[in-house]
Simulated assay, not measured.
Amino acid sequence: MKPVDEYFINQKEPYQSIMLYVRSLILNTLPEVIERYSYKIPFYNIDKKPMVYINILKGRDYVDVAFVQGVLLEKQFPILKNDNKRKQVRSIQLKALEDLDQENFVELLHEASSLLSKSKKAWFV
């Protein structure tokens, strides 16, 4: 079994269901994305550059769907929050599957992918 699969299997509910749903949306929306297991969490890369990752931050009660270049997307997608005072990363916090607007999330994925494809590197701050 791949480490990324083990990561999802070892999550408690409702986090496991939320993460698996987000994962399927990412993989089905962006067939060119590569799923990798880095820093003990799942990352989704385009052209070897990290675009988004899924995590549960210690002491939090939600799934953190974090966009690496989120600071450039937060005006267009107000659902993205600057949690944890991160310089560049912005994320969506999901406590339940119902918290995710699938149509808006798919649009966000396409925009993030397009933005990352035009960038020389993912981390610029």
Rank of each mutant, 00 (worst) to 15 (best):
38 S>Y: 10
58 K>R: 13
64 D>P: 06
66 A>G: 12
44 Y>H: 09
52 V>D: 09
37 Y>W: 08
67 F>D: 09
64 D>H: 15
64 D>V: 05
57 L>E: 13
34 I>A: 08
53 Y>Q: 02
66 A>D: 06
57 L>Y: 15
64 D>T: 14
48 K>N: 10
61 D>T: 15
36 R>V: 12
65 V>I: 15
45 N>F: 05
49 K>I: 07
32 E>A: 11
38 S>F: 02
59 G>Y: 08
63 V>P: 08
48 K>P: 00
38 S>P: 00
44 Y>S: 03
34 I>F: 04
54 I>Y: 10
42 P>R: 01
37 Y>D: 00
37 Y>S: 00
36 R>Y: 04
68 V>S: 02
37 Y>H: 08
39 Y>T: 09
55 N>L: 13
42 P>L: 02
47 D>Y: 12
67 F>Y: 11
61 D>S: 14
43 F>Q: 02
48 K>D: 13
40 K>A: 05
67 F>C: 06
51 M>F: 06
43 F>P: 07
40 K>V: 02
48 K>M: 03
57 L>A: 14
66 A>P: 04
54 I>C: 10
34 I>E: 14
59 G>P: 10
40 K>F: 01
63 V>S: 08
44 Y>V: 08
35 E>V: 12
65 V>K: 08
56 I>V: 15
65 V>W: 06
47 D>Q: 13
44 Y>D: 04
68 V>N: 02
63 V>Y: 10
66 A>M: 09
60 R>H: 09
43 F>E: 03
41 I>T: 13
33 V>I: 14
48 K>Q: 05
47 D>E: 13
41 I>H: 06
65 V>F: 07
67 F>H: 10
59 G>H: 05
47 D>N: 15
40 K>G: 01
48 K>S: 11
48 K>H: 06
42 P>K: 00
42 P>A: 00
40 K>W: 04
37 Y>G: 00
65 V>L: 07
48 K>T: 10
47 D>K: 14
58 K>S: 12
41 I>M: 13
46 I>W: 04
58 K>G: 01
56 I>S: 12
66 A>L: 03
47 D>F: 12
58 K>L: 01
53 Y>W: 14
36 R>I: 09
39 Y>A: 12
67 F>R: 10
41 I>C: 01
53 Y>H: 13
43 F>W: 14
53 Y>M: 03
36 R>F: 02
47 D>G: 03
52 V>I: 14
33 V>P: 04
56 I>A: 07
